[in-house]
Structures are given as structure tokens and as C-alpha cells.
Design a binder for these strands. Sequence first.
DNA 1: AATTTATTGTCTGAAAAATAGACAATAAAT
DNA 2: ATTTATTGTCTATTTTTCAGACAATAAATT
Lengths: 241, 241
Amino acid sequence: MKLFDEKNLIQQLSIDSVIFGYKNKELKVLVPKVGFNKPLYSLSGGFIFQNESIDSAAKRILEERTSIKDIYLEQFRVFGEINRTNFDFIEHINEIGREKFLNVGIDESDILWLTKRFVSIGYYALVDINKVNPKTTGFDDSIAWYNIKDLPKMIMDHNDMVNHALEALRQNLDQKLIGFNLLPETFTMKEVQELYEAVFDKAFARNNFQKKILDLDVLERLEKKFTGAANKAPYLYRFKK
Amino acid sequence: MKLFDEKNLIQQLSIDSVIFGYKNKELKVLVPKVGFNKPLYSLSGGFIFQNESIDSAAKRILEERTSIKDIYLEQFRVFGEINRTNFDFIEHINEIGREKFLNVGIDESDILWLTKRFVSIGYYALVDINKVNPKTTGFDDSIAWYNIKDLPKMIMDHNDMVNHALEALRQNLDQKLIGFNLLPETFTMKEVQELYEAVFDKAFARNNFQKKILDLDVLERLEKKFTGAANKAPYLYRFKK
DNA sequence: AATTTATTGTCTGAAAAATAGACAATAAAT
DNA sequence: ATTTATTGTCTATTTTTCAGACAATAAATT
């Protein structure tokens, strides 16, 4: 089974996306795992067809992994160090033997493709984690959410990519009001604050945070949310359309 | 004469740099011109060798055009629309005839190379315009500084690239204190202010501007600069090392 | 040599924004 | 009816930004 039709792809150029989700007051990243016995973790990556733009390619790659459309996407950086090659993969091939790969139906040309030097365009995506149905593609054998503070060691510079993506996310969170892409349709003010605290990894003062967010004039207040807790019920909010 | 040795280059990936300079209170961009009778303007571009990083490639390309080393460089965006092809060049070839190109010693393979789809990594550079010795390379037949408000129509999306570069420069000017790369070694406060005004295309209040810049604590004050004008002589400043 | 002119450097007060403290409102448990 | 925990908002304080004013001064003018 041949996965990469190099004739229709741009050579040596890849896309890697940091897919951010949010749950249990923690910022998470969707991380696929490849590897036949030794696990190799990597970001959700892919390649660019000749007949699509890089943004379309990034979207397609994300849709494959998350099963949802209309994902918030932002390009944040290109990674193009010399010898930016998947040495972990090469090492893995050498360890278990090239034949074993070929025996399970993996194409020689795919191995050749994947062991080249790649310049990679970094994107980050913000998704409502509840809507995502994580799916494996290509060589993935599983895929899972990881707390950003507890990411596995990934291939190449992928851990570094996450750091840069987080930095870009922090820069954009206020400016572009994109944080709501990480939340469900409706939410309480406390949930917004906890999201911000997870992203920035620091506490905000409740009184002033609420004022700041409301002053942005992008939320509409809905009915109250009765949680059953023995205290005043918070309002639900929704991002204005 | 063959210019592009495609075996040693990454395919379909290019670098385009917006080289910013500053003179006469105006922000300028260094723009090479190619074309054999019809002028085609473009940004300072080039390609990436297999044995260099994208940052090194960007530096090399800049050094070729400016004759100076240690240039301040910043990656700002990747441009990868589908069919991002140099149609102006193709049109030009068709207009004057392919043979004419080949007759002046231009290699067929170079034409083939240049008429492919390219994904281009955008960099911007900040240079001391007095130190730059602009030089043509490759197909350039001249190169000159243009006021950013008076740029010629360039090939492909290059005018758009300049807009994005300027936006990125504005975002970074305060935050990264990079503006001083556009100025000579020593300068007066008024010159700094005029630079900021040129970049942001708006006026700043003199009293508060001076305070803001001095509060950054990155400048050291040197001797006064006696200009011969009939008024108080301004101090010279230098960026702290 | 005194005065004038244009510009520079800095101060001060006013306005606006960010931060901290306080308290009433309230849903459910006691 | 009272208590508890949390929410929404108000006010006072601090900090930052912005605008106006003025002294200092290099050289031209008188």
C-alpha cells in the first residue's frame, strides 16, 4: 500500500499542525502515535498536493484527524533547519529491519519519501474538544489528547514547534478573540477565565477579568445555569455572531 | 549559462525578502528589476540549497543583494496559494519569444525552473541604508530603493507580501526593539521619532515619545551634535550593547 | 553684547486604564 | 430562617498614558 504519491505532492515541504483542545481546565494537544513496536509521537502532519493551497492542505490534514470542518487555523512559523530529517524514523527502521516494514505492505517509495529532509510549515488549530472525533491516518496507529504540560517526547523538533505555537496562541488570544474556538457553544464566565488561565498558565483576578471580557462587547448573555451548587447561579454566555 | 542547479535545491520552495531601509524620513524597500525589454519588478528572492537552513538561505540571498553581513532578519509568513506561479514571466517569454531567451544564453532548464508553482517563505530585513551596496544577481538587470508608498507593481503577490511585512514590522518594532537596525550607529532622538513616524505613517507627540524611548533603557547618551542650526543642539544616542 | 528664533529636554497635571478591595445578590444546604 | 459558597458589580487606588507648559541653548540677528 503506497500512501504518498510523490508526483502529486510538493517535494520536501510538509505541514505540521498543533491541534489545541481544552478540557478539565487544561490545554491539550492532539498527538498521533506511529511506530510498529517502538512508539514514535509526532504532530498531525501531512503534505501539500500540487492542486491545493497550503491553507487548504492544512485544513484537509486537520479534517482527516478530527472529523470536523471549519476549524480555526493559524500559520505561525516555518521550520527549516538543515538536516531536518526524521532520524527517529530512520533509526526505527534500522532497529527492526527494513524487510519487516516491507513485509507488512509498506511501500519502499513511502519510506524513501519520509526519510527526506523536510521544511515544515507550522499551523496551530483551535477546536471544541467535544466535537472532535480523533482519527488515525497514514501510518498512525493511535491518536490521543495530551495535556500540554505532559506531552510525550516527539520526533524531530515537534516539541519545539508546540512551544512556538503556544507562544503564538498567547499573542493572538486577546487580539483576535480566538479563545472561544476552544469552548463549546455556551459557557460561563468562570469557564472563560479558566481557559485563559490554562493558556497563560497564570491566575487572573476574577472581578477585573469579567469586566475586561464583557467590555470587549463580543459576548451575549443568555439564561442562568443552575448547577445544583449551593450558591448564586452563573449566567451562560455565547459568542456574538 | 545555467543559474539554478535544481539537483541541489529544494523544489518549488522559494524565499522572498522585503529589504527595508530608511532615508530622508521615508521607509524604503530594495526592489530588483528583471526583464529584457519589459520591466518586471520583484522582491529579492532566491532558493534553498539542500545543505543550508532556510534562515541561512535567506541570509545568503540578502548578502548577495546588499553586500553586507549580519543583517537583521525576521520570518513573517508563508505564501502558498494554489497556482502561485510567475505568470508575468511566462507572459513575457511568450511575448518576446522563447528563442530570444535561449539566444542570449539563458538555459532552458532555468526557464522551466522559474515557471513552476512556488511556495514562498516571506522574510523581512532591516538594514542601515548607508551601508548597503545594492547588487544585482541572477536575472536582475538593475536594483533600486523605492519609497514604500511608491512601489512599482511587482510580480505575483509581491506587493501583498510587502503589506504583510510592514504589518509584521509594526507589530515587532516596539516589542523587539528592532527599529535601530534601520538607523546608523548614532542618531538623535528626533531621528528615532521620524523613523517611527515613517513606519507607522502617523505622528507621535515629541515629549512623550522621548520619555517612552528613554524609559526602554536601551539607549546610551553620547555627546551633543552641533548641526549649525540656530537652536539647542540635540544629543546623539547609541543602542546599548 | 544683548536679543531673538527655533528646537530640545524635561517637568507637571489631567485623563484614562489597570488593579485591588469590598459588598450585595443568590442557589441550595443546614 | 440561617448559613455557605460563588457570582456580578461597584468604588477607590494605583499606574500608565496623554497634553500642556517652560526652561535651556546654539546660532542668527540687532
